[in-house]
């Protein structure tokens, strides 16, 4: 049957691991990790998800969204609006503005290493960008994501702007709309579906932030830049497998919540049609 190959992968590496996570979260390893860990029911899950480590991870992930999503959207719209006009050489600007899609998160992180690394970074003495200060480190790391997301945001907002019907623009011009009123009354509503889509994508990117943290700070100083995923996925971390599995279940719930919002938005879009 045609479905079998895909289903085999989905069962083996998507659904079975969910069962396995629950199983791992219900066994607590002893301090030395020897022998089979004993079954402890849901106590380890409850301990972990109410513990300060998990709460800190969620807080840092949420902060990461606050730092990256609004700024990313505003800059993306600014880039697209600026580049959506007939000027000589506009193609060159459009290429430059999309260029960050050619960087992976790891490459973008190395790029920001040259800017904010406390020892060799170009801006190492700029206090509000300091990776050495627990109060500014997470924000500083997040700027690498903002920069890296720009290309994608630009491309999608620009495509959406170019889909705005010309008649719409002409009607607005006849009504004597100035540029600002035009932007808020005509442009923003018309590109709002693309903006909603991008908001969801950027939230997901923030939840998935990992490489930038490992390359720029290793979670430090202290635990100041440890997001939830970092606590789960850091192979050098001190947490036991049971604790990591419990945190993964927490991440699953958060992911499901984001997906539910995403689904809600998408199904609403169907009603106001394209």
């Amino acid at each position: 049957m045609f479905l079998l190959p895909a289903l085999a992968v989905f069962v083996g590496f998507f659904y079975y691991p969910l069962y396995r996570l629950v199983d791992m979260a219900m066994h607590r390893e002893n301090r030395f990790g020897r022998g089979d860990p004993p079954y402890v029911g849901t106590t380890q899950i409850i301990d972990t998800l109410t513990g300060s480590d998990f709460v800190e991870g969620v807080t840092h992930s949420a902060l990461y969204m606050v730092y990256t999503v609004p700024l990313g959207l505003v800059l993306g719209v600014l880039l697209a609006v600026a580049a959506n006009r007939k000027l000589k050489g506009i193609r060159a600007f459009q290429t430059v503005f999309s260029s960050t899609v050619a960087t992976s998160v790891a490459v973008a992180s190395v790029i920001f290493f040259t800017l904010v690394n406390p020892e060799v970074g170009y801006f190492k003495d700029v206090t509000w960008l300091s990776l050495a200060n627990p109060d500014t480190a997470l924000f500083s790391v997040s700027l690498s994501s903002v920069w890296q997301n720009l290309g994608l945001t630009f491309i999608i907002v620009l495509a959406s702007l170019q889909a705005v019907p010309v008649e719409m623009e002409e009607a607005a011009a006849l009504d004597g709309y100035g540029p600002l009123r035009h932007f808020w009354r005509i442009t923003v509503p018309l590109i709002s579906p693309a903006l909603l889509f991008l908001a969801v994508v950027l939230v997901v990117h923030a939840l998935q932030a990992y490489a930038q943290i490992e390359l720029l700070t290793n979670g430090g100083p202290g635990t100041a830049t440890e997001t939830l995923l970092y606590k789960i996925a850091d192979p050098q971390g001190i947490r036991s497998v049971g604790v990591k599995a419990s945190m993964s279940l927490g991440l699953f719930v958060l992911t499901a919540a984001v997906a539910a919002v995403q689904y809600g938005l998408l199904s609403r879009r169907v009603h106001y049609g394209d």
């Binding site: 590496f13 659904y15 396995r20 996570l21 789960i232 990591k244 699953f252 997906a259």
Partner: peptide, 16 residues
């Protein structure tokens, strides 16, 4: 499967 990105299933898949 959209609810189960690799980040969520990571720990279990590594064990597998």
């Amino acid at each position: 499967t959209l609810l189960l990105p690799i980040e969520v299933t990571l720990i279990a898949n590594v064990r597998t």
